[in-house]
Design a protein around this nucleic acid. Structure first.
Lengths: 249, 249
DNA sequence: CGATCAATTGAGTGTGTTCAATGTCAGTGG
DNA sequence: CCACTGACATTGAACACACTCAATTGATCG
């Protein structure tokens, strides 16, 4: 199960994560469970619905809608955001192929965020009510969701720590590192030149900053020779220094 | 199941949450499941170990230790914290009777925080490995943990939002409101005079501030006549204005 | 090509931090 | 009972970082 592109049990769940093995994919276990012989025999697989492709800017789920499903991202990129009472937007996270979105609505009535595509995106829908069925064939499925919830909690906790102890430049470098390691991003030419599917404003919201501050921090990093910033393309020129900057807080 | 003090199936799980009904208790469902006829019949209840009482300042679990259990707090108060690389402390949360701690270690090898008692505290230990057993009698138990994980994710997300969009005074007022509504705190005399089991420094760390800033913000709120601050005792004098301050961000 | 939105840059402001000093309380021992 | 201690809490002054407001540039698209 270590070879790339292992999610090929069926076309609808073929989660291709370019340049990465399935080991890094959150939903690997999920896919295996859902397409196991036993699950297929019991018809579990049939409730999984492929949806999309969505164009950029479409909503996969909408805040306040009844939360009925989780979604695995097959291709594309998604931002999960919420409009605050003062009209500002707060982006809770960015998600990429192999990620599962909607976990924060487990055991809640409604979605608390909008999930909006950043580019052409396809997903698989997993009905939430299946989570709670006592079906023998779903036990492994439930455990996988539980694992992902544990991960999600840790991720949120880490984010809180970073938000408090890192300055503008450090947050941006950490963000780029996350994109490179944890997530799928389109990597151009060299290994450390990446294309951002989201706007600078989105990044600002995610990192708890203003767009102006993002601009200034990027310029500062560029002047230091650590990165090259051109529109939606970022090149990390000095990874050693970058990593040192993140740690020395 | 709406009457107070419903956790009286057995002494070891009697989670008395003063002045609050069990509806507000995170672990109500858990207790019901664990002490259901079927669970008891299958011997599930016997794996739940009462521990304590711990004195103030003791560790319930230790960072880097192998994570083997969750803990329900029966009495007392607990802070969950981590020492950062620069020597600073980051407090992830405060927990009170009826709360479940250790959820962030679900599906992880080790604890990522220290859980330290703030006063005399007793807990019940729930072995994590039971979570993943295919035992029929544990299905409901698993679902409850899943629900709590969902809640925990939402809580962390909310915290992130607040950390970004509220100033020092607003954060403190929101913190006090949380203590009053969601958590158990020792309430003295009137309904809105409460005793804080944690230090001002702990509060600062939790809210992402410096102790000095907490002091100044409290003074400001006191000068405005909204609160009265004396050592470990806080009195909310003008709740209407306090709530208005939190919302108008 | 102009219109529109995103991104950048500049100048001035403000909130919370840093560093240092002082004040307060609880516990201890003379 | 009082002085001494150490941890916590408060206060003050100067500073730094990110924010706000405003103007400009740049990219994209009909």
């Amino acid at each position: 199960m270590n070879k790339p592109h292992c999610h090929s049990g069926r076309a609808s769940l073929r989660l291709v994560r370019q340049k990465q093995s399935c080991d890094l994919c959150d939903t690997r276990q999920l896919c295996e469970d859902l397409w196991s012989d036993q699950a297929v025999m019991n018809g579990v697989g049939d409730v999984i619905q492929p949806k999309g492709p969505y164009a950029a800017g479409e909503r996969i789920y909408r805040i306040e809608d009844q939360s009925k499903s989780l979604f695995i991202i097959k291709e594309g990129a998604v931002k999960v955001e919420k409009v605050l009472s003062d009209g500002n937007c707060h982006i809770s996270g960015f998600y990429f192929p192999g990620d599962l979105i909607g976990l924060e609505s487990v055991d809640d009535e409604k979605y608390r965020y909008d999930a909006i595509t950043l580019e052409q995106t396809s997903v698989c829908e997993l009905p939430l009510d299946r989570l709670y069925e006592h079906d023998e064939s779903l036990v492994s499925f439930q455990q996988t969701i539980m694992s992902l919830l544990g991960k999600r909690v840790r991720q949120a906790d880490d984010m809180l720590t970073h938000a408090r102890y890192l300055n503008a430049e450090q947050r941006l470098l950490l963000f780029f590192e996350m994109l490179c390691t944890r997530y799928f991003v389109q990597i151009i030419d060299s290994k450390h030149k990446l294309r951002l599917p989201m706007s600078k404003g989105d990044i600002a919201s995610y990192l708890g900053m203003r767009p102006e501050s993002v601009s200034r921090a990027l310029r500062k990093l560029q002047n230091l020779g650590i990165i090259e910033n051109h529109l939606k393309t970022i090149e990390i020129k000095d990874i050693a220094v970058a990593k040192k900057m993140i740690c020395n807080s």
